[in-house]
Design a protein around this nucleic acid. Structure first.
Lengths: 242, 242
DNA sequence: TAGATTTGGTTAGAGGCTGTAGCTATAGTG
DNA sequence: CACTATAGCTACAGCCTCTAACCAAATCTA
């Protein structure tokens, strides 16, 4: 009956419930930070919260549900970090902005590796991501699309363009997504293709770094990221300087 | 007393033991293929082999030990696949060879995604990789180093070169590794840096593909790989044609 | 060949987990 | 004030890993 105010101002019961859910997620993140996803235990969380075992099932249907909530939160937080970086560099050159966005992505990952791995790590085979995950991922990549839309076509990427074009024309929602972040762009294909490239490059570097695969090797992942994003910027002709 | 023949010809007991270990690993791979790493269960394997529970602990100290064995085998198999591709393309141009190696890497991953994720997926936080893992990974990358050593320096990569140079001079074994795969090369730094780049790019593309992150997007990962490896070949000036 | 030893296999069980069933008590609701 | 929804509980079924204690057969040794 209370006309669903956007956030608080629900019934006290609902507010209590929401608060406990927050505490559960908090404890869950602490567990994951300490021992990885596989250490996430409904039982153990309940104990740290002072309640016993099955009580938590009143708040999350099961372990996967809790995981899903954590992942959703993570995407939102990551998207926010990227957005912030985009705003903070609004007056810089496109090339600089691309590097800044990529570093924001990496910095977010390094600041909370466990949370990053929740999003970008190997998903459990049993786990089925909810449908809205696509939207969340698009929100993270949106600012990249916006910046890369300022570049031009990359001749060598022609085969990729063909595939991306089929995708954007054949799949509802994709064109709207691009339009939302790069409204001035007439042809979304080059920007979208470049964004996929940026995503793959960032994922490669950052996930290797976060997983510890670079340990014992002499290079800095930030240097790698600079080089790769710079090369991409050059390839699509993003204006430098600023 | 029998002068440790390289493989078989041990005592019958040892041969039996080795055979059971093989069967265990076989069953383990089947489990992982069906349900991911988290589905790997010593107990369940024992049952499929007709023995009961704790018997398997006579063959593998614990779950992590079994996992380690699977990972070791995986590295060997992957290295073999790359080596084969290298041999099969011995007469082609360096550029073509780089693409062929990258596709061999991807093909191996796609043919047995569960095994690939064992090597490249997010490692469990509790799991400690044995020391020889580094050697295995170097064996996989070796052929890439060999091909990329035929290229020249890439000016934009200068900052990376500095870091890699410090690594190769400061870490015993690295120079030897490079020398083993690219004996003619005087300065290993550009080849090594390019190999790191190739690794990161391949990992980004292939792991996203195998994890299913490209699902619903219109591009083919093979196209992406062609583009990225081609761009790298161009950057380091690998000769084309042939 | 006979005894000693190693080793593969067994069952029992401790301790952990997920998730369900069924109960009680209490906080909101009409 | 009566009623209902719900937060919490205990008990339990059914998995899991891994240890302990024991048995029997294969192998080694004297």
């Amino acid at each position: 009956m209370p006309p669903s105010a956007p956030d608080a101002a629900q019934t006290p019961r609902q507010r209590y419930r929401a608060q406990v859910q927050q505490e559960v997620k908090q404890a869950a993140l602490a567990q994951i930070a300490a021992g990885g996803i596989e250490a996430l235990s409904i039982n153990a969380i309940a104990k740290t919260l002072g309640m016993s075992g099955p009580a938590l099932y009143k708040y999350f249907r099961n372990r996967d549900d809790l995981l899903t909530a954590l992942i959703s939160d993570g995407y939102e937080d990551a998207a926010e970090a990227i957005r912030t970086a985009a705003h903070r560099t609004a007056d810089r050159s496109p090339r600089d902005r691309l590097l800044a966005l990529a570093h924001a992505y990496r910095d977010w990952a390094l600041a909370q590796p466990h949370r990053y791995l929740l999003l970008a790590g190997t998903p459990a085979m049993a786990y089925e991501a909810p449908a809205h995950t696509t939207d969340s991922a698009r929100a993270v990549m949106g600012p990249f699309v916006a910046v890369l839309a300022e570049g031009g076509p990359w001749p060598a990427a022609a085969p990729l363009y063909d595939e991306v074009r089929a995708w954007v024309t054949g799949t509802p929602g994709v064109a709207e997504w691009i339009a939302a972040y790069a409204p001035e762009t007439t042809d979304p294909v080059p920007a979208l293709a470049a964004s996929v490239l940026a995503w793959a490059r960032m994922h490669g570097i950052v996930s290797l770094e976060v997983q510890g695969n670079f340990k014992g090797m002499g290079h800095n992942a930030g240097t790698l990221l600079d080089l790769e994003m710079g090369a991409l910027a050059d390839a699509v002709g993003l204006a430098a300087g600023g």
